[in-house]
Amino acid sequence: MTAPKFALVASETPEAAEALDRLEQRYGHRDVEDAEIIVALGGDGLMLETLHRFMNQGLPIYGMNCGTVGFLMNQYSEDDLPERLSAAEPATVHPLRMTVDCVNGTSCEALAINEVSLLREGRQAAKIGIAIDSVERMDELICDGVMVATPAGSTAYNLSAHGPIVPIGGQLLALTPISAFRPRRWRGALLPASAEVVFTVHEPQKRPVSATADFTEVRDVLKVRVYEDKSLDLNLLFDPEHDLEERIIKEQFQP
């Protein structure tokens, strides 16, 4: 089997930079334009950044953990990298597309691989209405915020907000409140991946709300529409013994 052509990218941390130097000395340097796989050296933040950066290239990404959090990364090792890449198994994820209408009349779009989150901008709680597939499901959620998370992002901010971990193959999205005040006991919902979620901000002048899709923040929003963009396939590669599905199951049994 011919070894795949791969390019190396790394975060700016000393650990990742040193790993990049060692791997380039061992395997050589190749530009992304000439590669079949991108090898990302860092943590989950670097993986997220790399997925966004090369979203339109169509190249699978194989991460090796040189950072603090490495849920989306494989174990770092300098040995047998071409063989590991040849044996790696793909996991395909689709990003969320966020379309936003702002208080000032402007509109914009952004993509999220982890989650789209709405957060209050000031000291007062946000008041947000929620509709799913054009059906109003909650007239008013009083909260610090609310998010829609993908399966790949369900172990990130969503998990910190006590949202559910979603298996990659589950075809689900997690709708999770952030510090909900009313309804006090509402913990969120699991939605089919095909669902379209529309958030409407009540009293936006008095209770301003921002919307963030991964790295992209929009301030003073009025309405936010979120849905999975099936036209974009993002392929992550994992060692067979450390596949993403197994990591998600394992995470649910952590003490």
Results as ranks from 00 to 15, higher is better:
Gly122Leu: 08
Ser210Cys: 06
Leu191Cys: 06
Ala161Trp: 10
Val198Pro: 02
Gly105Ser: 10
Val218Arg: 01
Gly169Val: 09
Ser160Glu: 10
Arg219Phe: 08
Val148Glu: 12
Ser154Trp: 06
Glu136Ile: 15
Val218Pro: 02
Ile113Ser: 04
Lys223His: 08
Leu119Val: 05
Val197Tyr: 07
Phe181Asp: 02
Gly122Pro: 03
Glu109Leu: 00
Glu115Trp: 00
Gly169His: 08
Leu191Ile: 07
Thr176Lys: 03
Cys108His: 06
Glu217Phe: 00
Cys108Tyr: 01
Met138Asp: 00
Leu118Tyr: 03
Met147Asp: 12
Gly145Leu: 00
Gly163Ser: 14
Cys108Glu: 14
Ala189Leu: 12
Leu159Lys: 08
Val148Ser: 06
Val224Phe: 08
Ile128His: 03
Ala149Gln: 04
Val218Cys: 02
Ala161Met: 12
Asp133Ser: 11
Ser194Lys: 13
Asn114Ala: 12
Thr212Ala: 04
Tyr157Thr: 05
Arg225His: 08
Phe215Asp: 14
Met147Lys: 02
Pro208Tyr: 02
Val201Cys: 05
Pro183Tyr: 03
Val201Asp: 04
Trp186Asp: 00
Arg185Tyr: 11
Ile128Val: 14
Gly170Ala: 15
Gly170Ile: 11
Ala193His: 07
Leu118Gln: 06
Arg123Ala: 14
Asp220Val: 01
Arg182Val: 03
Gln124Ala: 13
Ser179Cys: 15
Ala189Val: 07
Arg225Ser: 15
Glu140Ser: 15
Pro204Glu: 03
Ser107Val: 04
Arg120Trp: 02
His162Val: 01
Tyr157Gly: 06
Ser117Phe: 04
Ser107Cys: 14
Pro177Cys: 09
Gly163Arg: 04
Val226Pro: 04
Thr106Ser: 15
Ala174Gly: 12
Asp139Glu: 14
Ala156Trp: 02
Leu222Asp: 14
Gly188Glu: 07
Arg219Pro: 01
Gln171Asn: 15
Thr106Cys: 00
Ala131Asn: 12
Val218Trp: 00
Leu191Ser: 09
Ala126Gly: 10
Thr176Ile: 07
Arg184Cys: 00
